[in-house]
Computed example of a mutant assay.
Amino acid sequence: MGHRSWVRAVKCQLLATSLFIMLLGLSVSILTIITYYGKHFTVIKDVSLEKNAYYRTFHSVVLYTGMCLSLILMVASLLSIVATVRELERGMAVGFFCFAIVFCVSVQATYWTVTNSALVEDAMMDVYDFVYEDVRSNTSNSKREELQTIHQTFLCCGKRSPFGEESNIENEMCQSKMVDSAKEDCLQEIQHFLKKHMEFVSILMTITVFFMVYGMILTSFLWYSIHFNNSLDRKGKYILAKQ
């Protein structure tokens, strides 16, 4: 009875964990969509600069990685639920394998957000720098419109000189109604926004790592129980004895 009680408890925990992992997969997909289609990211991606290739590549990689990770989470959670209810040995093994894959990807993503998030910050700020300098030295209407769109999106205007001087851009663009209450330095606003976003990504990936480890422990325990016919609800095979 003791072992069967343990099996019943692990089954309940795996079912609850699988449901939470399903919600986690949905959260990853929503975060991926926000990152790819969010106006703060698309306004930088749409800037027509040859030196914007790095950020555009990063933007595409985020979409494919996030959607693949979300899909694997959904499949792993559904597979774990079915394998738990029907006591499928192979289902438990595949669920464990899916959890292991997501664990490796999540660890790598968490490490990358902590160590290399500055690269994305630099890429976004470089794009703004290029547009800003191009508008200051040129009167191109397209670049001016792109700069104005960035200002409207991040609620900022221009760059603050360490000497307190203002260029023609600040004198012209920062007097409009749009920026009356938003005259912050755009480089600081971009950096602040991206740090908050990366912190949220890091938290979500950390939670994912924890539940992947927990899921691997539960599926391995149930695989062992099913493999050695120690499951709680398994019906034995009975043979009628000949009289």
Rank of each mutant, 00 (worst) to 15 (best):
S137K: 11
N138K: 12
N138S: 15
N138Y: 07
T139N: 09
T139C: 05
T139R: 06
S140V: 00
S140K: 02
S140M: 00
S140E: 00
N141M: 05
N141H: 03
N141G: 03
N141T: 04
S142W: 01
S142H: 03
S142M: 01
S142T: 01
S142Y: 02
S142D: 00
K143G: 03
K143D: 00
K143V: 01
K143W: 01
K143C: 01
R144D: 00
R144K: 06
E145K: 07
E146Q: 03
E146S: 02
E146W: 02
L147R: 01
L147V: 00
L147D: 00
L147N: 00
Q148D: 05
Q148Y: 02
T149L: 10
T149F: 05
T149E: 08
T149S: 06
I150E: 00
H151E: 01
H151V: 01
Q152H: 06
Q152L: 07
Q152Y: 04
Q152V: 02
T153S: 00
T153R: 03
F154L: 08
F154M: 08
F154G: 04
F154W: 08
L155R: 12
L155N: 09
L155F: 10
L155W: 08
C156D: 00
C156N: 05
C157K: 04
C157W: 04
C157N: 03
C157F: 02
C157H: 02
G158N: 02
G158S: 06
G158E: 02
G158L: 04
G158H: 03
G158F: 03
G158I: 01
K159Q: 06
K159N: 05
K159W: 04
K159L: 11
R160E: 06
R160F: 08
S161W: 14
S161I: 14
P162L: 10
P162I: 12
P162A: 12
P162C: 10
P162K: 11
F163R: 11
F163S: 12
F163Y: 10
G164H: 10
G164T: 14
E165M: 13
E165L: 15
E165T: 14
E165Y: 13
E166H: 15
E166L: 15
E166N: 15
E166F: 15
S167I: 09
S167C: 11
S167A: 12
S167V: 09
N168R: 15
N168M: 14
N168V: 08
N168Y: 10
I169R: 01
I169A: 02
I169E: 02
I169H: 02
I169D: 03
E170D: 10
E170P: 07
E170R: 15
E170S: 12
E170G: 05
E170C: 11
N171F: 14
N171Y: 13
N171R: 15
E172M: 15
E172G: 07
E172V: 05
E172Q: 15
M173D: 06
M173A: 10
C174Y: 13
C174N: 10
Q175M: 11
Q175L: 11
S176T: 08
S176R: 09
S176Y: 07
S176L: 07
K177L: 13
K177M: 11
K177C: 08
M178K: 14
M178P: 06
M178Y: 10
M178L: 15
M178Q: 13
V179P: 05
V179H: 12
V179E: 09
V179W: 11
V179T: 13
D180Q: 14
D180A: 12
D180W: 11
S181I: 14
A182W: 12
A182R: 12
A182C: 09
